[in-house]
Design a protein around this nucleic acid. Structure first.
Lengths: 339, 339
DNA sequence: TCAAAAGTGTTATCCTTACACCCATGT
DNA sequence: ACATGGGTGTAAGGATAACACTTTTGA
């Protein structure tokens, strides 16, 4: 092998023959918040019957013309949805068996690099095929703003049965522990564990994706009659779960919410946005104190009376906080959550 | 195009011709801590003169035989270093211009998926070509344990000159802001911003990697005579910077340090490990209180007198904390840092 | 006996949490 | 007037940060 031609790629001698060539997919979870709902941009390819017209994330393969991964992503999103992206960050690269179902051949890999993008307002989605959907449409068990979501009652027996039906007692204990960690048993549930919850449902055969194109995952109870949440193409719902988890986490230590807000807004709007994302209700007074005392916003001097009751002050994000050391986020640590 | 054959890959009609095929590299930042130093496993390919024998991370291309990305990674690492990996997490997928320097052709992409792995002890590295190296060998400006590192004095004039030599005043201001954010100006410096600092040095043409295989990056001062830190192959040093940043961040909110500790250890050892990773000194008393009061460890009943002075209690990680909600890490938030 | 590291105790301060209450507008 | 959301004040409890000090070993 020509070692000197690839100075930065260390490979054991003779291994390059085995090197596989593969295709790269790019997918985007594009998030906006309008009013009370966290929205994600979904595409539905009308003319495609083979896939049953499943909802999907904007995505497409990396092409030769794309200079960088991110450029390729922006290109695909604009082609498919006419949405221009603002803040973009890489989420994860999916590369294993989950992607294989798409190919005929087993040996060739198909990777998919998933991105999270935040945009400021939900424009009416130019294309007829693209639409903004509440993300709780796909994850109804993640919305605790009006108390414990009802779906959970339907889910828990199935999850418990899955843990109980484990091949060994030890595995059963592990499953039970994972369940209690993800879904919470006693006082606390961690709103960030979105991916864990989805994966448990997947392993238990309780989401539609788990039942596609393969026998049931081993140890799964037989096809559940109730498959909660709207199915998505490929592993897009897994990507969405990861995106929600990341955003719920990041919001706490970096001022990313403001990427989703209009230039000026009220503290109430900001709180509702944070609640929409995190899926829990917050204490009004403490939330406000937190924001103001961390000096995340500044007055505009104006007010709006469009909110219902007393007119609210309009504030704007204080860009300067980005230059101040740690650069705080909107913490909502256990205490901020209203019971 | 055969839409129904790829139900989860949405591509605009006719685009598939442009789809490029490419190779995937897998790289691992493998971290261990021995005594006072955070170590990373580096390989040096003795017989290769083309690359000038640059130090590199264990890495290799994804092969057909690899079932998953992570399996491929473990395979390469074991082949090159005989090290078996424990905790492994994906770091980032690098896919843009930074990789292009390796290829002759511009149009084909070469992606690289970087991973972070934590191992419990630095075994003598079976292969002669693999060696554990302190990561501060590559980032001497990141070690503040004995006060402000001396290299910074040599670096700052160059960085300031780079900001001053910006093509426009506006850009100059932006550069100055980035510098003060990353390197800290007044009271605080954020030990997590390892990647930002490396990238600024790169842009300023002050690390060896920036001067390779291309003209100087635009706006760079002419080749600095002093290029701090040991150079690595490809963009491996960038990967290492990202790994350090991630680990320094994660240590604070997840109990990952314990992946690096032996089964039993003293609180002093734990503190030195955290200090090694974060690059700052901590308050002994407050650190201990934090650990014990968060119930991260439990007594073993034993003690060791190998530490120098009075024998220390040996403790072990309390695995149960993983099952307790939030699952805390070793916080060292401003206050814990000794001035 | 002294250096070195382990380990204990205490205090002021600040942040978090929770509670109760007032204000300005539209209907 | 009253419902609705905006906005203020304050007090208890707990965590943090910074003190100073004692204990137990090896050299």
């Amino acid at each position: 092998m020509a070692a000197s031609a690839q100075p930065d790629r260390l490979q054991s001698p003779g291994a390059s023959d085995a090197e596989s060539r593969l295709s790269i997919g790019l997918s985007a979870v594009i998030v906006a918040v309008t009013g009370d709902d966290p929205k994600v941009l979904a595409v539905r390819h009308a003319g495609r019957e083979g896939a049953g017209g499943r909802e999907a994330l904007p995505s497409g393969p990396l092409e030769r013309g794309h200079r960088t991964l991110e450029a390729g992503l922006r290109n695909w999103v604009e082609r498919q949805t006419h949405q221009v992206l603002g803040h973009v960050e890489q989420l994860y690269t999916f590369g294993d068996r989950d992607r294989r179902e798409t190919d005929g051949e087993d040996a060739d890999h198909a990777l998919s690099v998933a991105y999270l993008a935040l945009v400021r307002e939900a424009r009416p989605a130019g294309d007829a095929d693209a639409a903004w959907e509440s993300w709780y449409r796909y994850f109804p068990w993640e919305d605790w703003r009006d108390g414990r979501p009802a779906v959970l009652d339907a889910l828990e027996p199935g999850l418990r049965a899955w843990a109980a039906s484990a091949p060994s007692a030890a595995l059963g204990t592990i499953r039970a522990e994972r369940l209690s960690l993800a879904f919470g048993s006693a006082q606390g549930r961690d709103e960030e564990r979105v991916l864990e919850r989805y994966e448990l449902l997947y392993e238990a055969g309780m989401v539609a994706e788990a039942l596609r194109e393969r026998g049931l995952p081993e140890g799964a109870s037989r096809p559940a009659t109730f498959l909660p949440g709207v199915e998505m193409a490929g592993d897009h719902r897994r990507m969405l779960a990861l995106a929600i988890a990341r955003l719920r986490g990041k919001i706490k230590y970096r001022p990313v919410v403001f990427e989703l807000m209009p230039p000026t807004f009220t503290l109430g709007q900001l709180q509702r946005t944070v609640e929409a994302l995190s899926g829990v209700r917050l204490h009004k007074q403490n939330f406000r104190r937190l924001i103001e005392q961390q000096r995340l916003v500044e007055e505009t001097g104006e007010a709006t009376s469009e909110t219902g009751g007393r007119p609210a002050r309009l504030v704007r994000f204080r860009r300067e906080v980005l230059l101040e050391r740690p650069a705080p986020g909107v913490r909502l640590p256990s205490g901020g959550i209203r019971r």
